[in-house]
Nucleic acid binder design. Sequence first.
DNA 1: CGTGTGATTGACGCCTGTCAACGTCTGTGG
DNA 2: CCACAGACGTTGACAGGCGTCAATCACACG
Lengths: 235, 235
Amino acid sequence: MKNRDLIPFCDSCFNDLDTIFKHLTPEEKAKVDKDKVCNSYKRGNIVYHEGSRTNGFYCVNAGVVKILKTGIDGREQIIAFAKKGDIIGFRSILSNELACSSAKVINDAVLCFIPGETLIDLVKTNGNFSMALMQQTCKELGEANSFITDIAQKTVRERLAEVLLHLKDIFDLDDDLVLQILLTREELANIVGTATESVIRLLSEFKHDKLIDLNGRKIKILNVKQLEKISNAFN
Amino acid sequence: MKNRDLIPFCDSCFNDLDTIFKHLTPEEKAKVDKDKVCNSYKRGNIVYHEGSRTNGFYCVNAGVVKILKTGIDGREQIIAFAKKGDIIGFRSILSNELACSSAKVINDAVLCFIPGETLIDLVKTNGNFSMALMQQTCKELGEANSFITDIAQKTVRERLAEVLLHLKDIFDLDDDLVLQILLTREELANIVGTATESVIRLLSEFKHDKLIDLNGRKIKILNVKQLEKISNAFN
DNA sequence: CGTGTGATTGACGCCTGTCAACGTCTGTGG
DNA sequence: CCACAGACGTTGACAGGCGTCAATCACACG
């Protein structure tokens, strides 16, 4: 499950990708690099659990993690995804609260743990870094508010179309137009906020209407324009 | 509508209340005080509009403002409320995006406008202030995520009970247990994310069950325990 | 007193959640 | 190699929550 000796190649997170770490000085990068502890996780592993106290945050070096909240009778609501270069779990460090969500691995992942004090030091001493982190948080907040409006006003059908397009933006399509993330029907339902059966029925409908094609968990996005129309996308 | 000569008494926001301004040095407070421009607004006035570019943020000195997004066919979704000591509109300043929500006055208000550069300067130079602001943003993000889970999983009835309790926490009750905020049925519906008629029917039901009492827009909260049970509150 | 906004009530129907049964696929153990 | 269990996907039946439409009432305001 975990491999404490793992030393991933973090250079791309520090320098190449558009991550918050690019706002650090070389010295600060070295400090983070020294403090970090990296592990690999398999699909289904819990990274941290809602309600627990954490003492650091994680940077995703590889794989995909879903961020979720547990609602009525244990039903998951998926809030967000994190992939290479994304950081997760920093919210509760900064607000000094218990974790308000869980993180669970979807695709086998490598995560780098960075202590909370390191983060807080950086926020307090590096204005650019703290601005960047604030911007990321604000952006997430904006997206959350958009999603509230959607989920409150749109039908399941509209939301499913929107979620498919959103997943396309996050994970891209391959050359065959296949969505580069494999989710169970239940996971899809837990993003859209509906029942598994509803997702299945609507996916079949979309397939019948030639908007998508289905092959197990592989979803091929055939008609973006029409999906946009269905999703009623303003944003 | 606006009164440019208004000079409100901002001392309580700077010193007495638990606002983010309490993290400022006396010099920084003086700077903010000098830069601010205060106006009064009447119910219904728009403070800023979704999609517009803003160049500053506001501190609520008096009154109540609702933060909302406009969804399908102009239907409002109320995201949050702001009252004395709260700041609004800083999100888009920090993330350098267009306003992703509108702010509209519910109770006649006095708002102090503070230029965006002043905010950004403070974030970059005052670590404690920026930590506090980050914490506030993180807290809002946590609440938004909770609301997503609720709205996706709970029935309208459960959400209405929860919203009533939430309003009680924000605005308190007077000695007669009357909720200290007056909202139209439509506004209530726009918080809960449902139709006006549904709110009316459920309120009548709650009244019949002796959980609340109604007198025009005045809502008396009679049985908190039972409302909590209905709202299925985990959080 | 007419007008307009908001509140209320009733009728109606569809979307969607729930329950149940069944099919499919994979991995495990005998 | 087969049987079996378990997870996941699919389909059908069904009911009820909730949105929509329409009519009416209440109340404030010019």
